[in-house]
Design a protein around this nucleic acid. Structure first.
Lengths: 335, 335
DNA sequence: GCCAGGCGTCGAAGCGCTTCGACGGAGGAC
DNA sequence: GTCCTCCGTCGAAGCGCTTCGACGCCTGGC
């Protein structure tokens, strides 16, 4: 193994000079830097991560806790993860993967052993048990999602409440008076997953404000679940003309089910969704949607963490505004 | 931060004794061990990962390279990842997440900096450019998937060839004489992704052996792609009665398309798939399938790595035999 | 009763890097 | 010309842990 002393000898300088040339923490003359860089290249030098972590008390590794529970859409999780890793690399950091299963112990472990410098936590619940832990940790963290009480913590997410509102307002603008939200599976609400709750809040608030009649329907993430909800809606809400879907796997099956029950989209029923653009576009009837900008959220989460690691203050809450794309699934009522 | 010397002082022993009590690498009297453990608990001691890595030249971290290219089924990737993380934790290891995008440089980096002790690589191609790199690395690795030439490397995967054969043989046993394989999107074959190729080999070999007439059809991973292939099959293979699907997202849409074209499953057409059990079970007509045992593959991959890290020899190739589950989508021809 | 051998523990020497204080020399201010 | 400053570099001291050799003591064999 080639080490920093080898590089130093080869370049005719001291090890500390090599270190400073690498980190830029002290000025090094152009000429010396060149020699050092040449030596590094010729010898194929790679600083030892452990030694570096020990001496600098920085591991340049971030922890990412991914959810693996029922009811969350896996591709979205993966998009987050990839975006986090990619962004972290831009800041010369790596990403350690933790599963929800490891729970609080896992967080504490990687933080206390100095395996990681900072943490990103996904799938936050309104009253998440990890909140006090994150507050007590001596390392910065960012949560993707908003708990009920976020004092002293840093959170970022799509503004799901505004997204719910945007969907309803879009439907209201088109003249719809009776709307329904087809949401996540029941267990997601039972767990009080923050983002699901906020969609409901926004949906309901906007409907009330606009004087619309509204109802909320959890839905199993299967085609069968979709059919069930479609039938139920038809039965219980015959005047229904607008639907908001916040449940990725169910979007296409639900539209199929409506059509099989004789409701044309958007002729009889306008449908909007909160889901990735790819999904919205790939459905037979492209769906007017508010995408969850996972790539942006992941990137911004890492950037927040980097700022915190750099000692800067960051806003406690970052809510990304929803951006709706109109597609073929919504139309004016009585059009 | 509490360190090993604090623990030692508190327990009235030397630091090395604490270390040996923790690692078990030398005998320690029961009584001393108790005192050490008590001290650790009382002080909340956590060994510093970097220091440990530096002194022992073991980081207790594994690298996992996940694919993020088009045409691979994301939930399956996630299952692998979770299984790898979970198993690694059982062996007191953590997992560093690398994306395919980082490529060979990323592998070399984490290996050379001693950030990780060993590597797991997914989505192997027949002529994978990372092969020579993995051979040259001084750290053990395991590939999930089989390249064309695996000499000197360790590979594990479902025996996709046998899986393809099993599907055909099952159909042949039921009396079907004309079969088709609906496969992955074209780009997967263009890239020569190993597992996709092997399914084709097994499918074709078994069909030839059994004197069946067979054809292979790549398929875009969208409902539209499924419809296209269904129509094409109907047109070009009117005598077709058996289909093997190896393309998760397309399974349900394909069956829908067949039924809309007037073919009943399994009445007119028997369908088998290579896909996760959950998917096979969630389709309207539960599908006879060979599951990809991702959890087992991930677990075994980690175990192989642990053996290699322990200095033991391991088999170069581990092929997990396919296990078919019969469901409602297959029936005897002319039944 | 004496010596060999092993068990249990200690001390010290690193592992490879960063960082702090120091220092020589060059340049600017007066 | 002198003094001060700042730039660029060096040396040494750790960072917190593991591990190797050494050593004392207890046990057992004869």
């Amino acid at each position: 193994m080639v080490k920093i002393t080898d590089v130093a000898r080869h370049a005719g300088v001291s090890p500390s000079t090599v270190s400073y040339a690498l980190s830029g923490k002290r000025p090094i003359s152009e000429e010396t830097r060149q020699r050092v860089e040449a030596a590094i290249r010729e010898l194929g030098y790679r600083p030892h991560a452990g030694a570096r972590a020990l001496a600098s008390s920085r591991s340049n590794v971030l922890a990412l806790v991914v959810p693996l529970r029922a009811g969350i859409h896996v591709p979205v999780v993966m998009q987050f993860a990839v975006s986090v890793v990619t962004t972290a690399r831009r800041y010369d950091h790596d990403v350690l993967l933790l599963t929800q299963e490891e729970g609080e112990d896992g967080l504490r472990r990687v933080a206390d052993t100095a395996l990681v410098d900072a943490l990103i936590v996904m799938d936050v619940q309104l009253h998440d048990p990890r909140l006090p832990l994150l507050r007590s940790l001596e390392r910065p963290s960012v949560m993707i999602g908003f708990p009920a009480e976020a004092d002293g913590l840093t959170c970022i997410d799509l503004d799901f409440k505004a997204a719910g509102e945007a969907c309803v307002e879009h439907l209201a603008r088109l003249g719809h008076r009776v709307v329904a939200l087809v949401g996540s599976p029941p267990e997601v609400y039972v767990r009080q997953t923050a983002f699901a709750q906020r969609v409901v809040q926004g949906f309901t608030a906007a409907a009330d404000r606009g004087g619309l009649s509204s109802s909320v329907h959890p839905c199993e993430a299967t085609p069968a679940g979709a059919r069930l909800v479609a039938e139920q809606l038809l039965r219980e809400q015959p005047a229904l003309t607008g639907v908001v879907v916040h449940n990725e796997p169910v979007l296409e099956p639900l539209i199929d089910a409506f059509e099989q029950l004789g409701l044309r989209v958007p002729g009889d029923l306008s449908v909007t969704a909160i889901c990735p653009d790819e999904l919205a576009e790939s459905v037979r009837v492209p769906v007017t949607s508010v995408p969850l900008p996972s790539a942006e959220v992941g990137e911004r989460a890492v950037q927040l963490l980097m700022k915190k690691l750099g000692g800067s203050a960051v806003p406690e809450a970052t809510l990304l505004p929803p951006r709706m794309t109109e597609r073929a699934s919504t139309a004016p009522r009585d059009a």
